[in-house]
């Protein structure tokens, strides 16, 4: 059976069961797919969902994009140079475990309640998995490939750019994938704790009105968004590192 068919069956079973059992639950305490679908249509019709999505995605894209642009080079340098690793490695390891939610009030004091603080929260949450994965990837580059560079008298910068970077790509892409989930969570956290806005606002407002079905709409939208982004990243990975699928992977 093709993979998509298995996924589709799995989805149908889950949604069907949710629909079947969800209907018996008090609509304040839970909801079910068809009610969520109705709420979804309503939110789309009034334009609320589109506006909220746009509002949420702006800090998401900026924060996540910056995290990639900073995290990848930082991870490459930490992994490649022992001095930098010794000097900065601990902060990256610590930063990954940082309870960011607790720091949001401080970030608000620094950056206010608007766009900047939201983008920063997303940035800080997604920076570390990208950086750590890149770092890990660099340390896993076969020594023999580095020696090819050295044997042909390639300068350090060329070894980094033309050997270490491509050899690390699978790890970098894995980090970027892991960061998608964290970035989505960070986005909603930012919307809860700063100016209530975007998809986070729909969640809070509908929860306050005991409109559980509407509350589920942004949650589902975010999860679908994360799946979509994951697929997109996988596609990009296949484009930039086509050799990887050939030399590694499972038997199908």
């Amino acid at each position: 059976m093709p993979r998509w068919a298995i996924t589709l069956i799995s989805l149908a079973v889950l949604i069907g069961a949710w629909e079947f059992f969800g209907r018996d639950i008090n609509p304040v305490f839970g909801s079910y797919p068809s009610a969520i679908a109705v709420a979804f249509v309503e939110l789309v019709r009034t334009g609320q969902l589109g506006a909220a999505l746009y509002e949420s995605l702006r800090p998401f894209v900026v924060g996540y994009g910056l995290a990639i642009m900073v995290g990848v080079p930082l991870g490459l340098i930490i992994g490649r140079f022992r001095v930098v690793e010794a000097a900065l490695g601990i902060y990256v390891t610590a930063g990954y475990a940082m309870p960011l939610v607790a720091l949001v009030p401080l970030l608000i004091l620094w950056l206010g309640l608007g766009f900047a603080v939201k983008a920063s929260v997303v940035f800080l949450m997604s920076l570390f998995p990208i950086c750590i994965n890149t770092w890990l990837g660099v340390t896993a580059v076969p020594k023999s490939l580095i020696e090819v560079g050295r044997a042909f008298v390639a300068p350090d910068s060329v070894i980094l750019r033309r050997i270490v970077l491509p050899a690390t790509l699978p790890y970098i892409m894995a980090g970027i994938r892991l960061a998608v989930g964290r970035a989505v969570v960070a986005m909603v956290i930012a919307e809860f704790f700063t100016t209530i806005s975007g998809l986070g606002a729909i969640i809070i407002n509908s929860a306050n009105n005991f409109d559980t079905a509407t509350m589920f709409v942004p949650i589902v939208v975010l999860m679908v968004l994360a799946i979509g982004l994951n697929g997109l990243i996988g596609w990009v990975e296949h484009r930039v590192a086509p050799w990887q699928a050939e030399i590694a992977g499972r038997d199908e």
Binding site: S144, P166, A241, W243
Partner: peptide, 10 residues
């Protein structure tokens, strides 16, 4: 010339 060729796979 390396034992296992060591070509850059990309």
């Amino acid at each position: 010339v390396f034992q296992h060729a060591e070509l850059l796979p990309w």
